[in-house]
Design a binder for these strands. Structure first.
Lengths: 219, 219, 219, 219
DNA sequence: GATGAATGAGCATTCATTCAT
DNA sequence: AATGAATGAATGCTCATTCAT
């Protein structure tokens, strides 16, 4: 019996080994430029073994994404456990999000890009369903945690809005997504200049945004 | 004399021929999956001829992007010429943006994705500078048109904000960018459900957003 | 244990398989006109496999050259082991050289030509260093074997010269190289006619040359 | 009548224009790396016009070679007109040859290489016959000038040999050719080292060589 | 005679995936 | 389970040559 468990544990360790290798390489070169060969090498495994744990390069990517989302999920859980006004929770969540993104920019970029690309490439291929589902579920939970924070804020009065919590959450998500794009596009274009001219930063801008959006005085 | 002009016109027509072919193929399969071979075939030209008009596959892409931006620019110019309150101008611009995006979703997606990817691939390559510059300039102008609309709104009282016009514009841009992402990610996730549950659509949500953001009652 | 060795042997056999294929094709069409595709086909391997054994088309060429030089080296070694006057050793070496060349004319030509061309093409590329080094070393050894033969000849009195052995060797090398050129340039020009008119051949001419050069009576 | 001549002269000028352009480019990049496009540009002509004057890229090359040979021919004529002992004439010719080579190394290399390559490429093509003939003739004349110098030397006693003048000339040619190879192979290998160690240079080595070869004391 | 736009065959190289051992 | 050798489809780009004007 114990033998089965050990096997199980080792299997998981291998998976992690691979995943870690991929993430490292993504940070260094991006996902597309990373070959299965390199991944195998970095993970100190053979190329063939990779396919024992992941059906596909695409699946591998999906798994990496899942890991990133789980990471974010843990952080969001940590935030919502804090005893703070809802408005603060919302703000902290968004800042947490942006921080995580910034610190793993290359990684996140790879996630986002591939999210788009894979449709181009996978024409017809099945795509491992479970992991994709997992990712969606985590994303849903992230969304719901934000909704909960908003609800808390409405109850404690720190948030004033005429919108449904879910709708407001969606709006905030769009803003986050937009800011994310800004970070990801290496060429910050004129945007950076505007921020500099006004002695602003993305986090500060975010606060301004929330100040307005969470204090809706319109009837 | 007329002969030179005719040549000139024909040259331009060829360019357009190619560009149109590329856009069609992008809509059908995405840019990466489109080979120079296919482009040539679709444009009813030989592969070699492509390289007479565009140095590179990358340059070709850049040119397509420029065309899309010019298209948007024209529409924005059309909006700002209208005799309407600034708040309306801003709303119209954003709606115009979203409409254009939606109608050429595949195309836009290709643009956005490639914007990210090329950095991965072009490590070291020179990249035709002029077209890239052109694109940046048009993007800047788009930004400035939005700023102008905001300024108009502030003067005519239709917009109330404590933010600098440029900063507000940036904020609106982020929101647009986020909404764009929503459109582009084929899998609309839980977001679509939320919209449906509340009998909303992106345009309507946008209006709500502007209602709040352009009527800042906070001190 | 034996398994590792077998693998090793098979690997070497593959390399030889490829090398042999290349040489055949070089004899038939020259190196430049030979495509990787053809090489793979002739070696009954896939194109990809070629790149498993040789980084580059250029590297492949280098390897072929090395093989040729090794072949020559063996023959030179065989000559110098013979118990003959030094003058005879020198003559035999030069004849050996010319024979080998003549019998693999196409092959040698490919070597010589590419030696020149690659500089034109490889501007910047790294070039596998080890094989290049190997080739240089073998060339050096060939040179030194000739020097040794000369030294033997000086000691046993069969060679009379006021030149340093190395310098004399260099001179002989130039003559060989010139004769080589004669063989390689398919159009033997007027040279052939001269030889015929005097009932001479390159080997005979070589003997005459050595007669003079190795019996230097000038003070 | 004058009009025809003028046309003729202009035609020749165009040819020279092109030839000069090619030579420049060969010196800069080698022949293979030089495209018809570049040649046209440098000659300030259109690509199509090139084909009005030369059937082929190959023919163009042949023409360049002819020009080089003519150049050499003139120099040889200049030498033989000098009132010097035959041995000196021979030496001067060979030095002239080596000088010319050295000063136009890139050019000469291109000539020699292509001499070999073209057979690989021209499988089947006709090759403009006249120019090829011309080249052969000039080469023959160069050879005969050397023979004449030798004959002069034999008569005036400055050259002692038991060989036929033509045969001796051939031998000297081989040596020149070998030295040429040395110059052309950028990597002078161990040869350079030998020269340095003995404080020699190719010209000095050549003198030594002639000292021996032109003073044949063997019966 | 001159032009230069158009052609299209030709080629090295990469890399995800498979499968015999 | 693990390996890694073998595969081969896929693709961007070059350039000598032609030909309508």
């Amino acid at each position: 019996m114990g033998i089965k468990e050990r096997k199980e544990r080792e299997k998981k360790r291998r998976r992690d080994q691979i995943l870690t290798a991929v993430i490292e390489l993504i940070e260094e070169q991006g996902f597309d430029r990373t070959t299965m060969e390199e991944i195998a090498e970095r993970a100190e495994l053979s190329k063939g073994t990779l396919y024992l744990y992941f059906n596909d390069k695409s699946t591998l990517h999906q798994a990496v994404k899942k890991r990133g989302l789980q990471h974010l999920h843990e952080k969001f859980l940590h935030v919502i456990k804090q005893d703070l006004p809802g408005a603060e929770l919302v703000k902290n969540m968004m800042l947490t999000f942006l921080n995580t993104i910034t610190q793993n920019a290359a990684f996140t970029k790879a996630m986002v890009i591939y999210e788009h690309i894979k449709e181009e490439n996978n024409q017809g291929k099945p795509e491992t369903p479970s992991i994709v589902e997992d990712c969606k579920n985590i994303e849903d939970e992230l969304f719901m945690l934000m909704v909960r924070a908003i609800q808390i804020g409405i109850q404690d009065g720190s948030i004033q809005t005429r919108l449904q919590p879910k709708v407001l959450s969606l709006m905030l998500n769009f803003q986050m997504s937009g800011m994310l794009n800004f970070y990801l596009s290496g060429t910050h274009k004129s945007a950076t200049k505007v921020l500099e001219e006004n002695e602003l930063s993305i986090p500060k801008l975010l606060e301004e945004f929330l100040d307005i959006q969470l204090n809706d005085q319109t009837q």
